[in-house]
């Protein structure tokens, strides 16, 4: 249990009468790579919103490194080490790429990182993911793939123990998918546990050590990529009866 990073118990989230998540259990160990998949509308994004604190769940608990964080606001969770990237990139448009990274360094990672040389630290992060050549560009005018990279770089700058990546590869070309995967692997090598939400099965299968499948707000499978792919319930969810 000591190595457990995230423990979600009986998580339920309703929007009015619609049950988006129905008593979902999920756990993640230190440095683990988890793929979270499911058809559209199955509750994946709601799930990570509840984990990162963008939404509050109605029932159940979220524990991070053994602490109950169910009622903590998103910025406190970020301070503790939960970072996320957004499905639709949300760069700080008035800032350069480098300045974008300074925000999490000055806030989320403030208690855990060196307070000096903030922009040097940001530069180092950009170098580790081979993105340094864009450092001084305006973040609002980046290409799609570069915006996705910025999302991940910014999440990395929060010095997280858990990264939740929400469809970082949607709409990218095959070689671009490989570039993003590379970044996620670098992150993971640094000991960051990763939850990856993705529709691109090739990427999910290659990256994940374990896969969880959601369907209509319920968890229907949890296991190694091979097990999950041969699970009849998963086939039914994706292909129908």
């Amino acid at each position: 249990m000591a190595d457990r990073v995230l423990n979600v118990t009986d998580l339920t989230k309703r929007f009015g009468g619609f049950v988006a998540l129905d008593s979902v259990n999920l756990h993640l160990d230190k440095g683990e790579r988890l793929g979270l998949i499911g058809p559209n509308g199955s509750g994946k994004t709601t799930m990570i919103n509840c984990i990162s604190g963008s939404l509050f769940n109605d029932e159940g608990t979220v524990e991070f490194e053994g602490r109950d964080i169910t009622s903590l606001p998103a910025h406190k969770r970020a301070h503790m080490g939960i970072a996320r990237s957004f499905q639709i990139p949300k760069p700080f448009k008035s800032m350069t790429v480098l300045e974008n990274l300074c925000i999490p360094l000055e806030f989320a990672a403030w208690d855990r990182a060196d307070h000096r040389h903030i922009s040097e630290q940001a530069m180092e992060i950009l170098e580790t993911i081979k993105f340094a050549e864009r450092a001084h560009e305006n973040s609002g005018s980046l290409t799609q793939v570069d915006m996705r990279k910025l999302e991940l770089a910014r999440a990395l700058a929060a010095k997280p123990t858990l990264l939740v990546s929400d469809e970082a590869m949607a709409g990218l070309s095959s070689s671009e998918v490989d570039e993003i995967l590379e970044i996620l692997l670098v992150l993971n090598e640094q000991g960051v546990a990763v939850i990856m939400i993705e529709h691109i099965m090739r990427a999910v299968m290659r990256y994940s050590e374990r896969i969880v499948v959601l369907d209509a707000g319920k968890k229907i499978a949890d296991g190694s990529p091979d097990e999950v792919m041969h699970n009849p319930e998963v086939e039914r969810a994706y292909l129908g009866e």
């Binding site: 700080f92 008035s94 925000i103």
Partner: peptide, 25 residues
């Protein structure tokens, strides 16, 4: 100051700012 950095992040994208640890409220 750091406050100004945080305010600029809020101006650009409040949700992203909160998730990057900025105490937006």
């Amino acid at each position: 100051s750091r406050i100004g950095q945080g305010l600029a992040a809020i101006r650009d994208d409040e949700v992203a700012a909160e998730c990057m640890g900025v105490p937006t409220l």
